[in-house]
Design a protein around this nucleic acid. Structure first.
Lengths: 198, 198, 198, 198
DNA sequence: GATGAATGAGTTTTCATTCAT
DNA sequence: CATGAATGAAAACTCATTCAT
């Protein structure tokens, strides 16, 4: 009787083995040969677990995304005020510890811009919605506990987009330094207006 | 007597000839052969005017960007209130007429994410700064003529980033429909707070 | 007590299970993986019963050929005149009911032309001889019962070849419509000459 | 000013250079790498002159077919009687000198059976029609000059098919020796019936 | 006896760049 | 000044066959 391999796990194993490769070269320079060599398997084996090259990238991104989301969610819950929560959320875009995640996010967007794969697109949409819902929940709770004025809800989408936009700008211009300052400045200025004055 | 070719002009001519090609296929599917044929010159000639393929793309983007900036600037001046000016600026991200520009912008970001060429990067930075300055000027004028409250200046960077972020989201999730609504909602909500009440 | 598997029967079972696959895709697109899956056995098992991929094809063709020959022989016996028998025999090349057989025959020839395997070749020769003998018997009987003139025997080989040749032509040019007409025209013209006039 | 190459001629040159390769290995084992090496050009160059691998085969077959047709036509004209003309025509299927042509014809049919490419198919149809017309003309002339009886015309298609069928049989069973005998026997038997007796 | 995971040589095709003319 | 023919490295992907269990 032959060995029965846990296909799902092996798929993850191969993808994870290529994490470094992915962060070093980005997707464009990732070759199936490299992936196979790095994962220590034959080229043919790759195609037993992934339908094509894009599928490998999809799995890597998927794993890392899920991994990150969990850790981020924890952090959010430990922040005290709504203002802090928003800043905590946005910190992925500048925090030194999240450098890998940004690299990931960068590739993530890059894929969407160049290879509009259906499955990938749906995943992107799901991610965006998830993050947006986090934002909404944070704001809603802020309103509920009297921290924020009623109309604050209208800023949820914009604040999320703002953080993303500043990040994109920083990637495009290769300047990460000002990102933190700019996000904080905008967030503080906005919260000065939407926080309930006592 | 040898013909003296205006190198700068011919470089532009070649780039312009490929405008259509660029909008049809994007950068990834642009081949040097196509470019040469479309511009009506030999493949070798391309390399007399451009140092490599990226350089062609750079020139195309450059020309189109400059072209667009001029037309956009005009429109901005004809808008009445500050709120309208900001909306006018942001309209590039959803207006039917600016569809080509968005395609351009998309490719523009895509290049930065995948091929961080130094020259390109500097150009990107310059563009971002220009737009940001526009925003600042608009807000400054709004404050100067008593439309906006003093602290509004702090929102300049964020508003620009917000618009960019919403656009990126829409490209990534392939949904353009809500962009206008979301930008307007955010802008209106913000201006309701920063406009001076009479 | 170990189970004793009837190797010969299992070989046939596997081959028969792939009949559909064979008719759908032809031999070129038949993969060992497909065969294994369709037959409900492991890929390794295939190699316990067949020496290589060609061998699978050989078995399939063999089974189908034998299967067909039996049914064809029956039909031949029920035809009345010699002329009708020849037409009945040739009808495999155009009759709507024999579409699968033609597909089989096509692949059969295709194999011989590209992979001149020894075993396959011998099988082909045997088939051809069988058919030719049928023809000879038909003609002989025709002469014996006074239907045909003495020299008719010389046309056996040619008539058989003619039918085959017309079929090949029709496959190659993708025109099946005229096959019937052409075969009948030739057969009738010939029989008008070789039938004994009363 | 760069060299202007005669594309049509170079296409022929490359194809001709691979003639040997083609006859040695057949089409299935012909690789683009081999073709390039044999023709003494780079692999990329192949794709400047042929749209894909099939196209190379098409060109080879085309050249050889045309080449052969001319020589065959000459021979036909020098044959004396109609009977001889038919035998001359059929000799391609067994004559020692036509060994290459048979190899070609074999591959030719093989392609049609496995890769029903549109262009190839049309070429096949054209070839078949050409040969058939030759047959018809030969028979017509035979009738016109009183050699053959009126109804002989009905045998044109069948005789051509018969020759082709005998050839196919011989390829399939790998026996060339009897082909000549069988064709002649059939031809003679038939002509004994359709020639006008004096 | 039976299996199915693993393989890797081998295939077609693309295209930026060079350089002889 | 201008050209376009030639290149070849590099890529994604296939599948018959093997062999440890």
């Amino acid at each position: 009787m032959a060995i029965i391999v846990d296909k799902v796990q092996k798929r993850k194993d191969i993808a994870l083995a290529c994490k470094e490769l992915f962060f070093q070269n980005g997707i464009n320079d990732l070759t199936v040969s490299q992936v196979a060599k790095t994962a220590g398997v034959g080229k043919g084996t790759i195609y037993d677990y992934f339908k094509n090259k894009e599928d490998i990238v999809f799995e890597i991104v998927n794993i890392l995304m899920v991994e990150h989301n969990e850790s981020k969610h924890e952090k959010l819950n430990s922040a005290s005020s709504t203002r802090e929560k928003i800043k905590t959320f946005s910190s992925i875009f500048y925090d030194e510890k999240d450098i890998e995640l940004r690299q990931l996010y960068k590739e993530f967007i890059s894929i969407s811009l160049t290879n509009p794969d259906k499955e990938m697109m749906e995943f992107q949409t799901a991610c965006t919605n998830t993050y947006f819902e986090w934002f909404q929940t944070i704001i809603d709770e802020g309103i509920a506990n009297g921290e924020l004025i009623e109309s604050s809800q209208k800023f949820a989408r914009g604040m999320f987009a703002m953080a993303e936009g500043i990040f994109i700008s920083s990637v495009v211009t290769h300047t990460i330094d000002d990102v933190k300052k700019e996000i904080h400045q905008f967030t503080d200025a906005l919260f000065d207006l939407i926080e309930v004055k006592q």
